[in-house]
């Protein structure tokens, strides 16, 4: 059977590592991260940019990986949840999520963590309003958000003390 489409070879820089992958132009960044590169921490929840489960960082900025094609990510630095996880243990923000019970089913959690991490990197003094506003693009069906907000604020305070 003839293939329905050509594949092209691209270089992706993900979590500081170069990956050479063969992709169809229509494959979204989310699908390629998950199925070609094997980073399944990036989750897919709506494929129209509303739910935020697929959020990754592109050159440090949160973006929807379901609304980008993998070919577009060439030349950029992509960070996924695997990339913000230390080799052993958890990052201070991840620890704070655990301490504050900021996750239940955990499906939205990677996107939530990346958005929150990007916020704290930019605005180390973000108040509750700023945290809530930054997280509006990440839907969580389990937690009611309160413990997530608490976790981010606590991580912020911890960062200040250091």
């Amino acid at each position: 059977m003839a293939a329905v489409e050509d594949r092209i070879s691209i270089q992706l820089q993900v979590n500081g590592r170069q990956h050479q992958v063969e992709v169809a132009p229509r494959w979204t960044l989310a699908d390629v991260l998950r199925h070609q590169i094997g980073l399944t921490g990036t989750h897919i929840g709506c494929e129209q940019g509303v739910c935020g489960a697929c959020t990754v960082l592109l050159d440090g900025e949160p973006v929807r990986s379901c609304l980008m094609f993998a070919v577009q990510a060439q030349g950029h630095h992509v960070t996924t949840v695997e990339g913000v996880t230390p080799e052993t243990g958890l990052s201070p923000l991840q620890e704070s999520f655990r301490d504050h019970h900021a996750l239940q089913c955990g499906y939205c959690t990677p996107g939530m963590l990346l958005t929150a991490q990007a916020l704290l990197d930019r605005n180390p003094t973000a108040d509750e309003g700023a945290v809530r506003e930054a997280l509006t693009g990440n839907l969580c069906r389990c937690t009611g958000y309160q413990f997530i907000v608490d976790a981010v604020l606590a991580a912020r305070d911890q960062g200040r003390d250091e």
């Binding site: 940019g49 959020t55 929807r64 958005t115």
Partner: peptide
Amino acid sequence: IGHWAIRNR
């Protein structure tokens, strides 16, 4: 407009 991640793109 939209949310942070949307505004970034």
